[in-house]
Write a protein that binds this DNA or RNA. Sequence first.
DNA 1: GCCGAATGTTGACGTTGTAAACATCTAATT
DNA 2: AATTAGATGTTTACAACGTCAACATTCGGC
Lengths: 210, 210
Amino acid sequence: MGATDPETRYHHGDLRQSLIDAALKLIAEKQDAKTLSLREVARRVGVSHAAPYRHFADKEALLAAVAEEGFHILTRHLQESMKPLEDDPLGQLQASGVAYVKFAIAHPSHYRVMFSALQPNNPNYPALNAAGDEAFAVMVGAIAHTQTLGLVKPGDPRQLARITWSLVHGLAMLLIEGQLPLTDSEVVTTLAQQAAAALVYGLRQDIQGN
Amino acid sequence: MGATDPETRYHHGDLRQSLIDAALKLIAEKQDAKTLSLREVARRVGVSHAAPYRHFADKEALLAAVAEEGFHILTRHLQESMKPLEDDPLGQLQASGVAYVKFAIAHPSHYRVMFSALQPNNPNYPALNAAGDEAFAVMVGAIAHTQTLGLVKPGDPRQLARITWSLVHGLAMLLIEGQLPLTDSEVVTTLAQQAAAALVYGLRQDIQGN
DNA sequence: GCCGAATGTTGACGTTGTAAACATCTAATT
DNA sequence: AATTAGATGTTTACAACGTCAACATTCGGC
């Protein structure tokens, strides 16, 4: 029947994306990604408990899709944070670090799914891996840029990016897990800026050690 | 009956610790902490599936005990890494960072339970929180020590410790999650040393910014 | 208009976490 | 040494879950 009401149609129309959205909302409502129930997601969307299996091989595949979407959003945030500072590469590097942490704090559940719900480099999810690489590439590019201007010591930019990533990722994780006091957003920004500044100074090329 | 064979006794004798050990082994065998089944732990220990409830309120409480044990081990590792460098506080700081990452790599499953299996600061697990604080205190102490000698810029040592912790925690997480290439242990140590060195330089007090 | 493929539903199975009722052992008091 | 209360372990039961197989409905191309 041609009823336009999506609630009563046999075919949903865009079930795949609806499942991803519902999963994300449910994870955000509870604080926990691992207690997410596939049946509850289906219920929320108004579909039978087995319907998701037409779009995802299993529960993990749905989480992978959620994570992939998160990496795309993160990439966009990083890029936008760097835009207004195109004449200040070191500032760009620091700004992207702050933007990274801010993304994690703004979307903690999404961030958790991205990093602690499933192990990476899983060949079953090439799109997820590509999305993660894409975000990482933004950092590598920012560092490489500072290097060409002699602002940061030479060396494989990916190696330096790994260190940078470790710092912001660790900060983000500890913050959203509540291991660090997260009072107001100003304090967080300050902490992120301090951390980024410390690392940027440590990576300068005019220092003697290493 | 007084049979000395622990296998056939009605009372296990030390079931609580046996459950913790078995849980840890099972988590290590699979790579996954969240697929751990309480019933499987009980099976492994040779006890009925409801027996664990005499020692732990629920599955989460068992994981909390596993995590607590991990923090005690981590604290010991950190302290021992610093011992041979008592006349070199900056070296101690760097060494403890490397030791931190090495612990995580040596016991990835344990580390995962410690940080991503349950949310911290949960008042239900005061012993777990205390164990975490204990490990954090080692870092704070190391930083405070460098500050009293004027090797690191002044300021709340806990704030600087948070930044340091973020770096090592992020590095550890990315390494054990496979997000960073973990070829051999030398490469890892080098990366950890570079990261620690960069941060230590960034935290020096003779730099101008921040 | 027909028909195969895509999409959704129903029912089933084994596993899990957890509670309740029951059984057995340990230890302290007498 | 016998009793007995509490600690510890077992059995049974239930609802929820992930997933599969069989079936129903709808869509798109011929």
